[in-house]
Design a protein around this nucleic acid. Structure first.
Length: 261
DNA sequence: ATGGTAGCAAAGCTA
């Protein structure tokens, strides 16, 4: 069972890439972020034609998350129960083929100490609370998404930023994401790509559009797949697919995948 | 501190 997460930066602008990638990679489940449209504007048909069932939690212009699955989507939840006051569409959860999956779009935070940063921290507090409730279910769970945090120095092209006050790299943000890892969720990619085995091959998932970041591989690993123990036990493989980032008019993020037995 | 790019939507905001 192949499960992917991908921030596509507008499902309408990226529909050709999404279709191309679904056909070439044939994932069973895809967790999308930044769909950037209302549910009624979501391009259901071309994706359903490829055999996917779809659940969408959208809003106009910003954010928006969705789940595509070759299996039926059951028990769909839109918005985090622990953050019900959130007006932004950043979380959707469902059960599919007996795996509980969620598509998570953590706020960017803009700048450490800003109002948007406080919102990011509040989102992480709510996510931690909800993630702990989910652990008590003793299920295979995959929480995939754009976490907007590079958790360790190895996850940045410039590791001197780690633990500074730079957005995506700050101590506060790293502590929030590491807390999820330390509470029982495994970092899916690191199960098959432990840091001590990484050499020249980087596992970045996001490169800024500006200043030729991708060509120089000046990226960050900020998209993650968090696995419950029951999901981690079934992990056969995990990887980043950098191919779509090299296409014409790409998303600034690229897909991350896990394969479960 | 600024500017570099992209998407949405129609000027500026978000990233």
């Amino acid at each position: 069972m192949k499960i992917a997460t991908w921030n596509i930066n507008s499902v309408k602008a990226r529909l050709p890439h999404l279709v191309e990638w679904l056909q070439s990679s044939a994932p069973d489940v895809v967790l999308l972020q930044e769909t950037k449209c209302l549910e009624e504007a979501f391009p259901f048909e071309p994706l359903e034609d490829l055999g996917y069932n779809i659940s969408v939690y959208g809003q106009k212009t910003y954010n928006g998350v969705a789940i595509l699955s070759k299996y039926p989507l059951e028990d769909v939840t839109k918005g985090m129960p622990s953050f019900s006051e959130d007006p932004q569409a950043r979380y959707i959860e469902a059960v599919t083929n007996q795996v509980r999956v969620a598509s998570v779009y953590v706020p960017n935070g803009q700048e450490v100490g800003s109002e948007k940063f406080a919102y990011k921290m509040a989102f992480y507090e709510a996510l931690f609370k909800h993630s702990q409730t989910l652990l008590t279910l003793d299920e295979a769970i995959v929480l995939g998404g754009d976490y907007n945090v590079a958790p360790f120095p190895e996850d940045m092209h410039n590791p001197t930023l780690s633990g500074t006050d730079r957005i995506l790299c700050s101590v506060q943000e790293q502590n929030q994401l590491r807390r999820l890892f330390n509470s029982g969720y495994q970092d899916g990619l690191r199960l098959t790509h432990p840091i001590h085995l990484e050499k020249s091959h980087s596992l970045f998932t996001w490169w800024d559009y500006r200043a030729g970041s991708f060509d120089q591989n000046k990226g960050y690993r900020i998209d993650h797949l968090l696995l419950s123990p029951q999901a981690a036990d079934r992990t056969l493989d995990a990887d980043v697919d950098t191919t779509p980032r090299g296409w014409q008019r790409p998303s600034d993020h690229t897909p991350v995948l896990v394969k479960l037995s």
